[in-house]
Design a protein around this nucleic acid. Structure first.
Lengths: 339, 339
DNA sequence: ATGAAAGCGCTAACAC
DNA sequence: GTGTTAGCGCTTTCAT
């Protein structure tokens, strides 16, 4: 748009100094006499000057912006993201870290192949200084694309082999073990699990670790039903489980939403929770506390992980230490009333 | 970062033409001989050229970007947004319209006073060509700030007097009337309503219209409890209502989430829905269909409204017709099993 | 401590 | 059709 605002030049003329001096004041560089600083600031206020970011980026090769990218391959994409508290927690964790440093956070969504290409192009062209990526699918090509484009990138979840980018992750196997051992310790011998979709980044880790614990104790056949991380899919999974394996006495769900759905279904069918069937969730999101009964769950410190993710990227952008950097968090079992 | 990639100049040299010609090819301008076009494209591919957006914006005064802004004043901001299907629907509606035109959609969240200022500054400096704003609070200062900054802006919901910007809106009063008349027509004479937070943009419209319908039919005292647009607040509101006004036989909630909460609570207390109490929601989000029982609700075509919002902005950016433009949508009653 | 001047990479007149 | 050239608004040496 012909948004022809006042320029540095205008300010300089108004204040009776050179462009360079105005630039120094605007960028808070020292070596400017206090009185000149004042008169420049006055001039800026008077004529309502705002620096032009494009001109600035052109020379600094910086945008002062970081992208938080949500990427998935399914459909009704946004509707999916905007009904899972998980992503809100990520955003809540990232924002303060970026704000504090005066970095503008922009959320980008990559809901299709086309969108992904467009997005990488946008970022390559200087849309942001770096990217924080939350991949919803294990085989998401976006991280690799970003790395190939030379963009500093940090992932939520471990990168696949060869992807040279930073990441934060949870020890998912340890989390699943926590759940399994708790069920065992509270006497459950007929466990079942509502697993993540096969495509989810964390799916195998959580499932395998859960099965291992029981296998090691002689329980080798554990029913597995896949859910889709939604309350509804949790209900349906539980229905299947109850029908095919009525002897089940403990259920581990790969997230709280599905655990909540399982509880709902059980209670509606008159099955006592935790009396007859114990339920363990994963994440410790708000859903866990609001569920009936409040869920025993494996806590994933999503906000802290997200903050760390942003921290790693910022460090890298500041030309910090070793790269790629990463950080793995430990889960914690939170026992409430569903077990 | 020192992302010193190849420039137009490099491509020009490689292809043995001038910068201008390369520019023409890149921007799809006619008047370039086919064979030259080919050799330029080859050169681009060969050396992996990407146009520098900053340099481009500097001269065109365009970014090829539109911001979708979610603005609110509360806390646990993102957690709130990312658990209400409403915002996902807005995003789903906006994305295709923008993508189709090659415009990069960026989501911006304004969760605090500081964030709002930072955001306006960012946009003024050329962060995006225009803004689509979804205000969560009636007295949100952001729209006015954006307009004042001279940024083409379209709102979801009507602007307050004097805000010179485009908007889309639903005829909220008509929606509430639909609900009220339906309750009346199905014999409910002791209605109550779970209203939106006083701060919500749509709060008064929906509430007043609902009360008016019953007042006109001689029912002048209708209990009102405020919710917060969440399932949980719906439960709590229903609890209050049931305690203070056990004679209630019909409830109108200002969104589906609260209606869902109301249903949950009623059924847990052994109150039949719709047998004893009828419940009407608002929005017709996924929550309405998934609720038990499936909700009768007032349909708000959020995706279509969002698409229209994007359309209005794009038109304005293309230097289209009259400005500010706007579009108001009509609600529709969807009768399911809760009434 | 301040100013002059050289670009950053691109588009858009304007010539040819 | 294609090339030449003049900026877009800013930062950043380099002088002074």
């Amino acid at each position: 748009m012909g948004n022809r605002g006042p320029t540095l030049e205008d300010v300089a003329r108004e204040a009776g100094v050179s462009r360079a001096t105005v630039s120094r004041v605007v960028n808070g560089v020292r070596n400017v006499a206090p009185d000149i600083q004042r008169s420049v600031r006055d001039a800026i206020a008077r004529i309502g000057y705002t620096p032009n970011q494009a001109a600035r980026s052109l020379v600094t090769r910086r945008t002062g912006t970081v992208a938080l990218v949500l990427s998935a391959t399914g459909k009704a994409f946004a509707a999916r993201i905007f009904s899972d508290p998980f992503f809100g927690r990520v955003v809540d964790g990232v924002l303060p870290v970026l704000r504090e440093r005066g970095i503008q956070p922009v959320l980008l969504v990559a809901e299709s192949e086309q969108a992904r290409t467009q997005l990488v192009e946008y970022l390559r062209q200087g849309g942001a200084d770096g990217a924080l990526v939350v991949p919803l699918d294990q085989d998401d090509p976006l991280p690799a694309m970003l790395v190939a484009a030379g963009l500093p990138t940090v992932l939520f979840g471990s990168p696949r082999d060869g992807e040279r980018c930073g990441f934060v992750d949870l020890d998912n196997a340890a989390g699943a073990r926590l759940a399994a051992e708790h069920l065992w310790a509270t006497g459950r011998r007929r466990p079942a699990t509502i697993a993540a979709p096969v495509t989810a980044p964390t799916a195998d880790e959580r499932l395998d670790a859960f099965l291992d614990v029981f296998a090691a104790r002689g329980v080798s056949s554990v029913p597995v039903v896949r859910g889709r991380f939604t309350v509804d899919s949790g209900r349906r999974a539980m229905a299947r489980l109850l029908k095919d394996h009525p002897e089940t006495d403990g259920v581990f769900a790969a997230n709280d939403l599905m655990a909540q759905g399982a509880c709902q279904y059980l209670r509606e069918r008159g099955v006592a929770v935790p009396g007859t069937v114990a339920v363990v969730g994963f994440d410790d999101s708000v859903a866990a506390r609001k569920a009936r009964p409040p869920l025993t769950t494996v806590r994933q410190p999503v906000e802290r992980m997200a903050a760390a993710m942003a921290g790693l990227l910022v460090e890298e952008l500041d030309g910090g230490g070793s790269w790629p950097a990463s950080k793995v968090f430990e889960p914690l079992l939170v026992v409430r009333e569903s077990t």
